[in-house]
Design a protein around this nucleic acid. Sequence first.
DNA 1: AAGTCTGACAACCGCTGCTAA
DNA 2: GTTAGCAGCGGTTGTCAGACT
Length: 287
Amino acid sequence: MGRSPCCEKAHTNKGAWTKEEDQRLIDYIRIHGEGCWRSLPKAAGLLRCGKSCRLRWINYLRPDLKRGNFTEEEDELIIKLHSLLGNKWSLIAGRLPGRTDNEIKNYWNTHIKRKLISRGLDPQTHRPINETTGASITTAVKSSRLDFRDRSSPPALPVSEINLIMKPKTESIEDANFTSSGTTTEEEQDHHDSQIHRAHEPQPNLELTIGLVPFQSESTRSSSSSSLNTAESKLQWTSFPCPSATAMVAAKAVCLCCQLGFQNGEFCRNCCQNPNGFYRFHRPLNP
DNA sequence: AAGTCTGACAACCGCTGCTAA
DNA sequence: GTTAGCAGCGGTTGTCAGACT
């Protein structure tokens, strides 16, 4: 179907941003804050499309960005999150403070892919290459509904019904506590099947707990938060029980709104902290 | 020194999902 | 229920610097 262009292309600059454009954008957002990207260029006196402004701000001009090389811990965390979430770069970026989805995506394509291949792992499936290149297995997995990593999004399983604990590879995932409302839907069954299926594969030691998600009242949920049946919601209340290096990195990724200076106490108590005292990533709300 | 290749990354494009009218 | 507008996402492309021949 497509959509009309977001702006008059004939009257917009393209290509690399100049220092002057950067400064205009920074100055404008410093005064007016983020929001309404469509009207921002005109208001800020920029001959750019709103999407371009948003991208430039989010990926390069935001003050909280961490520049520089990725650490080994970040590498491993990205790999683990990718194995769990697939190419959901924005979700992965949400767990890495100061990193952007674009940055992680580029880094994945240029570094981590090769790193995994050198380890003999398929970057998409995180399985041994000799296993995934086996025609029958590959075909079966690719076409099967069992492997949710090959689908555009994880299975739409109510998060409240998952208590999946990624454990060291010796522990069968069948032991995970799946509760059911009694009427098992096809989707749920598929997911359960997939877990059983994957239980017989080498499991990454993710040290991530996808625990029971406590009920969130409307007041504690961002108005723009999407359905719980999303990959984001699967990790919304992620805690890191093991103080390993990667877990510590992730645990520090916690409260972006605090990092951005929105840490008036009420905001964080209500929006970032769950009843267990763990924090989750949160985008700042528009003022 | 010049030309070519390669890797890294910034930016663009098209699409999706959400929301309000 | 439908439509349009918007923000945001992920795939892809373009550009440039450094390595290599």
